[in-house]
């Protein structure tokens, strides 16, 4: 240890004041402060992934394998049951299942945003949004591996590319991460207050796979779709990406639903963070 390093002269940082009053835009400030700590949440997110596959020989190849396996089995069974064009159904299922996996991971992981980082929250004052960025990054990295399977299937399946596919791209690349971020803040805050919410989301998670057009196609559901299933917002997240990509048409209703949900989640999540800002550390 060299003595010189300890006597470095640095400019003193500005004084910080902690008081019961908080700024009216504390939540937004937190998001900005958190976004700037990209080095930290990137490191934490990659650490999460490395940790999950640490003592396995093929490591993250498992993400690819398990996705491919699930897809194959679902395809083998449902293409027979549903009596559909095989190639078309494979493209449909692969895209839908890929999106579904991402959405359900964001919903379930979103609940754990803060409770899984208790040690960090109680050990040092950090922007809360760091943990939301961490969660989103981790799930995007996983999705980037799985998307390879989907890309191969779409290319080999002979998909015709139209400019409308750009809508899919916009929604997947821009709106999905934004929504994932909002969800992880909103669900994270709710779960910190009440763990019941976490179990609720976990239970609903499996149900929503069947309530969303992943395995089945809306056109074939008739009245059930028109009267009930159409009100499931997750369905529109699926349709708004899948339809322009595979069929080249734009499902405007779904696109608007996605935009509306994004705005609503944005407001709700920021309101939740604003309300809970000074309480999270006591609740956790």
């Amino acid at each position: 240890m060299s003595d010189s390093t300890i006597t470095d002269i640095r400019p003193s940082p500005e004084p910080v004041i902690y008081q019961p009053k908080q700024s009216a835009i504390e939540a937004l400030k937190d998001v900005v402060r958190g976004a700037k700590r990209v080095n930290l949440w990137w490191a934490l997110a990659t650490e999460d992934l490395l940790q999950r596959y640490k003592r396995s020989a093929i490591g993250m190849l498992w993400i690819l394998l398990s996705f491919g396996l699930f897809l194959s089995v679902k395809f083998a069974i449902f293409s027979v049951i549903l009596d559909v064009d095989v190639v078309d159904y494979l493209k449909y299922l692969a895209t839908g299942y890929f999106i579904w996996i991402f959405i359900q991971r964001c919903l379930v992981d979103g609940c754990a945003t803060f409770i899984s980082s208790e040690g960090w929250i109680k050990g040092r004052k950090l922007p809360f949004s760091i943990f939301a960025f961490q969660m989103v990054t981790r799930n995007i990295l996983t999705a980037l591996i799985q998307v390879l399977v989907v890309a191969v299937i779409l290319v080999l399946g002979g998909t015709e590319w139209t400019p409308n596919a750009l809508i899919s791209l916009f929604i997947v690349v821009i709106l999905y991460p934004i929504n994932a971020f909002f969800i992880s803040i909103l669900f994270g805050v709710i779960t910190v207050r009440s763990r019941d919410f976490f179990y609720l989301v976990q239970s609903l998670n499996h149900i929503f796979l069947f309530l969303s057009p992943v395995l089945w196609q809306p056109e074939k559901m008739g009245a059930l779709w028109d009267n009930l299933l159409v009100y499931n917002p997750i369905a529109h997240f699926l349709i708004s990406v899948r339809t322009p990509l595979i069929y080249g048409t734009i499902p405007w209703t779904s696109v608007f639903v996605v935009l509306g949900v994004t705005a609503a989640l944005g407001i709700l999540s920021m309101a939740a963070l604003q309300f809970a800002y000074r309480r999270i550390v006591y609740w956790i």
């Binding site: 003193s12 940082p13 500005e14 004084p15 910080v16 004041i17 902690y18 008081q19 019961p20 908080q22 650490e47 940790q51 040690g119 960090w120 929250i121 109680k122 050990g123 040092r124 004052k125 000074r278 550390v281 006591y282």
Partner: peptide, 29 residues
């Protein structure tokens, strides 16, 4: 003092970079 627990009333003012050495496991992977 580390800013982790916000005060219910009163005010805390800190100038300087803070190092927290609380429980050993906190903030480690």
């Amino acid at each position: 003092a580390a800013g982790i627990f916000p005060p219910t009333s009163g005010e805390i003012e800190v100038q300087g970079e803070v190092a927290e050495l609380f429980n050993v496991g906190l903030g480690m992977r």
